[in-house]
Design a protein around this nucleic acid. Structure first.
Lengths: 344, 344
DNA sequence: TTCTCTACTGTGAACGCTCACAGCGCCTTT
DNA sequence: AAAGGCGCTGTGAGCGTTCACAGTAGAGAA
């Protein structure tokens, strides 16, 4: 009953730390101490304050707190993709959700910011400086200067995937793309395939580079020649996959397996192969990368390399919070896992 | 040169309104007025202040501002889905992106909050009250009490889709589900189909209910009997679509068209039909709903009903900001559009 | 007993901003 | 010439916290 009184129908002025102090019979200082860990507070006072907080329905005014502490207790999730690409990407969901919930566990809200255009980029940068404790940066293309700028401005920062550009002083969390690619190619080889092609990711992204490197290495390991005609550049998009497959079939009609650097592209590859009358996996085996929902949506379902997105997001948050807490930047690389389905 | 001085390598104390005032040779008050619309400020002063702002690199401290105004100039995007369902849904991306950019145009950051569990729900509610000017609510299930709670707490609120529960005093923006369904069924009928089934959405969601209603109405209009065996409940998920299609084939093997209440479910339906050896669209026409990326990923590509997500998000933001500005709640219903592809 | 140390508590003073008010010229009106 | 109005400006107060400091009481040591 008394719970509802303090806030009838409309918006009453919310209780402040003063109200709590009066209610508990202590001073502001003591309430503040309780709010911030409860050190140097007598058990009796602690009790009184906690019950007063409950009775009044008090919530700390984060603006007032931020004003004096200088912290904002919030974190930005910054997406800097030239175009919608990342939003087409199903992995994005998983990453975003993971980060949100991991932060929520620390009572830190996530600000979503999208910097597609230059104007947006500037706006976001202006906002970030001073209004956010740290940034989770998601941008596949290393060309963009955001990471460097933020790093230079001294904003705690964790990138998703290794930022190719900067001199390594920026934290990142990434899956082990190289090993993932190796696992897939080795698996294709083990299945008897000998003309193994690849559709790469964009080669200005670390993922694109490393997956291709893994492909090359493994071919060499297996004693297979690396035929440049079998290497077709892609852009992580579905349409890119379709085009790449068409090009591949033209350049190397005898191909019997394709390692595609993303599931989305693999979908495109499948659809081109289907149109060309090639059966998957009988005529051509197709391996994807990501284990995104797209892998299950594809027909046949994709054999692919799982990226541990849940762990990636958790690690990103962990590293970022550590860095906000004063620790040094860190790089975390997480293992991938081969997922066998029907396409290879 | 002088631009970089005020912020060397580390984090220097950022310039305040005082610094700007001194630099411009005016008082805090005048700077504040410039910051808030520039009314009652002489051209000379305006100029001086603006140039001082540029020179110092000043950004307003939103915490200090919020502390006194009581506004936070931020908005929450609240997702209350029992499970991950909505994150599996490609529409989500579009909606989220649309809202983010629409808000960004007003310099308002979007706080992403996910309330899957009860604990998360409570945490978010506590945060929202007093820390956010308004809420964009996305929750398909009307059972959840969040909308009612927020509305009661006096928090400006706009729902995506009509909230079935509350007594209508909460704003919402929705596509015209009923008409969308009618268009699709009429199209199927026009293509000569006479045993038209439907896989519904969850019937505790407005979308589910209205699409089914549109289906029933149109059948009646066309003079077709409404056979309850042709109505199979679904849950908007891919797997749900697969199961529903299996059930349908068992109950009514002579079905020649299915209107599926979401593209994702339609994907599932397609895959069951394929396994059952039915050709689409020759044997059975399949119509989806949403025009999500899933529609393009499906084989054959889905004929579907486009929801105008870009407009939905823009309208949600518009209505919310209006409400924050003191206007009354509003309901907006936007037209859908039939998109013809290969599945029907 | 007195002293010191520790655990706890209360009290200004900020933090950077907006808002209300008062003051100052200057122009218009009477 | 005085009165009123208007456009512009500066100033003090206060938003709700935290932080540093000073102060108090009680326990233990001398």
């Amino acid at each position: 009953m008394s719970r509802t009184e303090q806030n009838g129908t409309g918006r009453r002025r919310p209780p402040t730390i003063h109200d709590v102090a009066r209610e508990a019979g202590v001073s502001r200082g003591t309430v503040s101490r309780v709010l911030n860990g409860g050190h140097n507070v007598s058990p009796a006072a602690l009790d009184a304050v906690q019950s007063a907080i409950r009775r009044t329905g008090y919530t700390v005014n984060r603006h007032a707190r931020s004003l004096i502490t200088g912290r904002s207790d919030s974190v930005a999730f910054l997406l800097t993709e030239p175009q919608e690409r990342f939003f087409e990407d199903p992995n994005f969901n998983v990453l975003l959700r993971g980060c949100t919930t991991a932060l929520a566990a620390h009572d830190i809200p996530l600000l979503l910011m999208i910097a597609g255009t230059e104007a947006e980029r500037r706006r976001n940068m202006r906002y970030i400086a001073g209004h956010v404790d740290g940034v989770l940066l998601v941008s596949s293309h290393s060309g963009d200067p955001v990471a460097a700028q933020l790093h230079e401005a001294g904003v705690p920062l964790v990138a998703c995937g290794k930022p190719l550009g900067q001199g390594s002083r920026v934290s990142y969390v990434a899956a082990d793309d190289r090993h993932g690619a190796r696992d897939m190619v080795r698996y294709l080889y083990g299945a008897g395939r000998r003309r193994i092609a690849t559709v790469t990711g964009p080669l200005d992204t670390p993922g694109g580079v490393d997956r291709l490197a893994g492909y090359r290495e493994t071919l060499a390991e297996c004693g297979l020649p690396v035929d440049e005609a079998l290497i077709v550049p892609g852009d992580y998009s579905r349409a890119g996959g379709e085009a790449a497959a068409a090009l591949l079939l033209e350049r190397a009609p005898d191909v019997d397996a394709v390692f595609v650097a993303s599931d989305l592209m693999a979908q495109g590859v499948l659809s081109t192969l289907e149109r060309a009358g090639r059966r998957v996996p009988q005529d051509i085996a197709v391996g994807g990368f990501d284990d995104s929902p797209a892998a299950l949506a594809a027909r046949p379902e994709l054999t692919t390399v799982r990226q541990p997105w849940d762990r990636i997001s958790a690690e990103m948050v962990r590293v970022l919070l550590a860095q906000i807490g004063g620790e040094d930047p860190a790089a975390v690389i997480l293992p991938t896992e081969l997922v066998r389905r029907d396409s290879a």
